[in-house]
């Protein structure tokens, strides 16, 4: 089961090689995203799009806020 993390934990995990994934619509990603983040909007997450990620490394998903 996925675990909630805060900003400090995110930075530590990214330093250890975690992948960042923004799941907001693509236009919001184009405007601003966390450094190094990939974009896969929630509605487009499927086996094909997720193949761009490494399943053997941690993935951190985020959107705009806690919603």
């Amino acid at each position: 089961m996925s675990s909630p993390i805060d900003r400090d934990q995110l930075q530590n995990l990214v330093a250890q090689g975690a992948q960042l994934l923004e799941v907001l619509p693509a236009d919001e990603y184009r405007e601003d995203h966390l450094p190094g983040a990939r974009s896969i909007p929630l509605s487009q997450i499927d086996r094909e799009s997720a193949a761009a990620l490494d399943a053997n490394r941690a993935v951190i998903v985020y959107c705009w806020d806690m919603a």
Partner: peptide
């Protein structure tokens, strides 16, 4: 999104609750 990734075989998924 995290739940969906887990169904696709991702074992280490975290949610950044504070977000962008």
């Amino acid at each position: 999104a995290a739940a969906r990734l887990e169904t696709l075989g991702f074992g280490q998924v975290h949610e950044y609750r504070g977000g962008k």
